[in-house]
Design a protein around this nucleic acid. Structure first.
Lengths: 102, 102
DNA sequence: ATTGTATATGAGCATATGTTCATATACTTT
DNA sequence: AAAGTATATGAACATATGCTCATATACAAT
């Protein structure tokens, strides 16, 4: 059988999907996004709640920023982060609630 | 502010979610699952369609099997794989169709 | 100006991941 | 029994990942 006989995903679609899933595949990023689904948070606040170093959190926020999954506003020295991709947040919440109602 | 003031996910929930997303975060696994969403496939068939070695495909199927995302039946020398987790397939299709309709 | 505070970032490191290569296993065919 | 076919599996390797540590940056407060 030949490859053409099948509905094949375009490379771009596969790459984009894997990027989204990879973003959600790390426990720290899941926890950060879940926090942000509830309220706008500063970096230090996230670090305190998750009991992680500021640096580790900042690196993950940088990762999420690059993927446009979060955005921030500055207020003095404090950076307040919010989520910035409704679709990804919907996917995350679907999976989380599916797991919890088992 | 204290950690207890927030709705915190249980460690099990986070781990389980990250396992699901990690399973979907690799391009090869996405392609395999997408193929299986269309039809039952033998290992060699998957390898041919995806233009990958039998070994690479078999390793990924082993990964997906461990997570109970696929199952197989044997017919002589041939192993026919099908998907085995409707929820994960739904998530995958949601993300794929969201990407494609942009 | 100096010190303090909040965050970002680069280097380094240990671990995880995905593939290849060689080989094992189990069944089929002759 | 022997050779062939389809798949599984272990070792090895290169790359990716997520953290820590040290330091840079930018603004605030004194």
């Amino acid at each position: 059988m030949k490859q053409q006989d099948y509905s094949i995903l375009s490379p771009n679609t596969v790459d984009e999907a894997s990027r989204i899933f990879k973003a959600l595949s790390d426990p720290t990023r899941i926890k950060i996004l879940f926090l942000l689904s509830q309220e706008e948070c500063s970096v230090n606040h996230i670090a305190e709640v998750l009991e992680m170093t500021q640096s580790a959190v900042s690196h993950q926020l940088s990762f999420l920023r690059n993927l446009r999954l979060v955005k921030y506003r500055r207020e003095g020295n404090t950076f307040f982060y919010t989520y910035d991709d409704d679709h990804v947040m919907t996917i995350l919440n679907q999976v989380l609630s599916h797991i919890e109602c088992e």
